[in-house]
Write a protein that binds this DNA or RNA. Sequence first.
DNA 1: TTTCCGGGTTCCACGGAAACG
DNA 2: CCGTTTCCGTGGAACCCGGAA
Lengths: 332, 332
Amino acid sequence: MRNGRITMGDVARAAGVSPMTVSNAYRYPERVQDATRRRILEVAADLGYVPNLAAGSLAAGQSRVIGGAIPSMRNSSFYRYILGMQHAVAEAGYKLVLMLAEGIEQERQAVQTLVGLRVEGIVLVGNEHHSDTASLLSKTATPVVESWALEDAMDMCVGYDTAEATRAMVRLHASHGRRRIALIVYEGAVSRRFKMRIPAYEQQMRALGLTPDLVQHVQETDGFGAGPRALDALLQRAPDLDAVICPTDIIAAGAVFECGRRGIDVPGRIAVSGWGDYEIASEMTPGLTTIQPNAWEIGEAAIRMIVQRQRGRPPAEPATDTGFDILRRASA
Amino acid sequence: MRNGRITMGDVARAAGVSPMTVSNAYRYPERVQDATRRRILEVAADLGYVPNLAAGSLAAGQSRVIGGAIPSMRNSSFYRYILGMQHAVAEAGYKLVLMLAEGIEQERQAVQTLVGLRVEGIVLVGNEHHSDTASLLSKTATPVVESWALEDAMDMCVGYDTAEATRAMVRLHASHGRRRIALIVYEGAVSRRFKMRIPAYEQQMRALGLTPDLVQHVQETDGFGAGPRALDALLQRAPDLDAVICPTDIIAAGAVFECGRRGIDVPGRIAVSGWGDYEIASEMTPGLTTIQPNAWEIGEAAIRMIVQRQRGRPPAEPATDTGFDILRRASA
DNA sequence: TTTCCGGGTTCCACGGAAACG
DNA sequence: CCGTTTCCGTGGAACCCGGAA
């Protein structure tokens, strides 16, 4: 008990058993008599003992921990995603530790730490990473799931087809007679995740005989404020604009609020659609028509893929498509 | 290199030095010649080696990791809080790992895991915890900061005076001639954090000669939807309601949207104030008057308190008040 | 129950090179 | 000029806590 830390040996001594019995009491409860086990746990609680996961993982070669590097925790869609992961780890008897990773450099550091912790698997978001990240993960043979993406996976991935979602949204607007349909995308650190929407937009617009000339970029860091700015830019480029496909519900909400200030009727003059089914989408007026991405399922599937891999199951599908829905509300 | 894992010894062999030199190259770069060190790191990168933090923390008795048990990641106020923590850990050369802890039972498990990981400090939210959590932390002598709270701390705490903020908001409404001022509070898992606003409301109302009879409870899990419900309940109780103090901007936004639907003028007939300065507060119309809690500073201070404790500094103040501001916008 | 082992760190001893008398 | 002191980079041994046989 030097340096004040309680060890398994201390617990063993206090409970009058051998250290091995204490270890068994935790890892293989059925190997230890009920009464003995209860006494051990009681003594441990008394002493404030918690098994040292570091020592355990070192000795056993497994940590029962899965790590996630999450780029942003600012919206409710990601929140549902994290809840899905949490559900799946609890079910499998694992623990989930999260690290904040804004941008590929922070992600690289987070992955480095998680690998250092010898987690049994890592969940990333998107498929845009630092080159070191990929090489480190492959060299250490750490199971990785790239979530919210279905292409170019280094290992496994789970998400939905954003190109198809883009096309579906274009078709929805067109089916309501809209012809001057704009697409807003983010630029900056997360650009790649959004850029693939552009060719899908162009292709679908052309297929419908429309001109795909209204692609507008906004900064990802701008939050709500980007909505008004993007709308302003689009209206200057195309006063006859009649539909806007936004990259998130946040942008869409900002755009709708701006329309309110300018006296532009939504959806009368301009239809606005969001993306992500954030909480605000159902609560504001008009309600936002949006893409609903099954965030919870993405999180759950990401964890399950790692757990299955660890259990030696046939690597299953390396890619899981969780699909999406279009939620129709008043804004489009 | 059995079981495919690269160890420090493997790197040492490949670089033609002893394992000790590799260890030094990572932990005390200045002890190793520049050329040697560069060669070692190069070989390590080549092999995909990352020092095993578990082994390191076991041997060194310190992990350079701080853990956070976060109850919710669904709003932008918490997001800024996490960014503040991230900033402070980076500055101090620590790592931050987060675990989701919705409610005191999940928090207990998260704390158990973090203690098992032998993190050097733990950040919690609020001062409402499972009794096991407190006893475990005190018995293991793990530094703890309870953030977003200034009272009843088990160890250290950082936050602002919510009672004073409540009183200030009551005074603001009253100074605009409002007399039928309502207070909405959450009930459920986080209730304690909000309940202390009630006596502050009552006290300030009485001091102003007003009747503090309009306290309304809502479920914390309801998100935006709780706003309309609470407003409805209040209007039934008091048709002459003229001001509402909401527990979050989300509730406030929901209430304002509901007023819009009902044709109630905000702030003409009813003034609405929020709490937390979420992104939506500045972007919606009317903009929300709200309490701005310095979320970033709370996160930063929480980490700094732990780091200072670890560095053996005089325990500084056990409580840090980060203050708050009232942001005046159009809604009140 | 005992013993050994996992991967790394602390502490200290060692040895070569530069600086000094 | 050579022997000695000092400095600094490097390596050896014991040990951290818990798991498996």
